[in-house]
Simulated scan of single mutants.
Amino acid sequence: MMRHILVLLSFCAVLAGCAVAPAAERRSIAWDGLGRDPNHPDVTKRRVAGRTAPETDPNLERQRVLATLRPYFDAWWAVRDEILAENDRQLGSKLVICRSCVAQPPSEETTGSIR
């Protein structure tokens, strides 16, 4: 019986040692968006002289124009499509995908067998 307890305690000690990562290998923690972000240290924001103003959203003016147009008319659809295209462009610039994971489209249209 004593032998079983010793084996069980040894096994638990090994598992506990594996569960703790060294401080040098600190990885980001999944954050649910509530409260303070645990991945970013508390740093006070400082205003730096000469810093340029943040880029304004180009869709603000388009949304104002869209509000003045009659819904579902040709001009309304055109402005709405511009807004959606800009949103897609902004998302594409923020989204990082492994370049080798994405297959590049062929440079010319080809048809026929895939062999």
Score class of each variant (00 low, 15 high):
Met1Pro: 14
Met2Glu: 12
Arg3Glu: 15
Leu6His: 01
Leu9Gln: 05
Leu9Gly: 01
Leu9Glu: 01
Ser10Trp: 06
Ser10Val: 09
Ser10Asp: 01
Phe11Trp: 09
Phe11Ala: 10
Phe11Glu: 09
Cys12Gly: 04
Ala13Gln: 09
Ala13Asp: 05
Val14Glu: 02
Leu15Asp: 06
Ala16Glu: 04
Ala16Cys: 14
Ala16His: 03
Ala16Thr: 03
Gly17Asn: 14
Gly17His: 13
Cys18Phe: 13
Cys18Gly: 03
Ala19Pro: 03
Ala19Gly: 12
Val20His: 02
Val20Glu: 01
Pro22Ile: 02
Ala23Cys: 09
Ala24Val: 14
Glu25Tyr: 11
Glu25Ile: 10
Ser28Leu: 10
Ile29Pro: 00
Trp31Met: 14
Asp32Asn: 12
Gly35Val: 04
Gly35Arg: 02
Gly35Gln: 07
Asp37Leu: 01
Asp37Lys: 09
Asp37Tyr: 05
Asp37His: 03
Asp37Gln: 08
Pro38Phe: 08
Asn39His: 06
His40Trp: 04
Pro41Thr: 14
Asp42Asn: 03
Asp42Lys: 07
Asp42Leu: 15
Lys45Phe: 12
Lys45Arg: 11
Arg46Val: 09
Arg46Tyr: 12
Arg46Met: 04
Val48Cys: 03
Ala49Asn: 05
Gly50Tyr: 10
Gly50Leu: 08
Thr52Cys: 04
Thr52Val: 11
Ala53Gln: 07
Pro54Thr: 00
Pro54Tyr: 08
Pro54Gly: 01
Glu55Trp: 09
Glu55Tyr: 02
Glu55Asp: 15
Thr56Asp: 13
Thr56Phe: 07
Asp57Leu: 06
Asp57Thr: 07
Pro58Val: 06
Pro58Lys: 04
Arg62Lys: 15
Arg62Gln: 10
Arg62Glu: 06
Arg62Tyr: 05
Arg64Val: 11
Val65Asp: 02
Leu66Gln: 11
Thr68Val: 03
Thr68Glu: 03
Leu69His: 12
Leu69Gln: 09
Leu69Asp: 07
Arg70Gly: 00
Pro71Phe: 02
Pro71Lys: 15
Tyr72Ile: 02
Tyr72Val: 01
Phe73Thr: 15
Asp74Ser: 07
Asp74Leu: 08
Ala75Cys: 02
Trp76Phe: 05
Trp77Ser: 14
Trp77Glu: 15
Ala78Leu: 04
Val79Asp: 01
Arg80Leu: 15
Arg80Glu: 14
Asp81Ile: 06
Asp81Glu: 13
Asp81Leu: 07
Leu84Met: 11
Leu84Gln: 12
Ala85Lys: 13
Ala85Trp: 15
Glu86Gly: 09
Asn87Ala: 01
Asp88Ala: 12
Arg89His: 13
Arg89Pro: 01
Arg89Met: 11
Arg89Lys: 08
Arg89Ser: 07
Gln90Asp: 04
Leu91Val: 10
Gly92Tyr: 09
Gly92His: 06
Ser93Ala: 13
Ser93Lys: 10
Lys94Ser: 08
Leu95Val: 05
Cys98Ser: 02
Ser100Glu: 14
Cys101Ala: 15
Val102His: 05
Ala103Arg: 07
Ala103Leu: 04
Gln104Arg: 00
Gln104Tyr: 00
Pro105Ile: 00
Pro105Gln: 02
Pro106Leu: 00
Pro106Ser: 01
Ser107Thr: 00
Ser107Gln: 04
Glu108Thr: 09
Glu108Ile: 12
Glu109Leu: 13
Glu109Ile: 12
Glu109Tyr: 13
Glu109Trp: 08
Thr111Lys: 06
Thr111Trp: 00
Ser113Lys: 13
Ile114Arg: 13
Ile114Glu: 11
Ile114His: 10
Arg115Val: 02
Arg115Pro: 00
Arg115Glu: 07
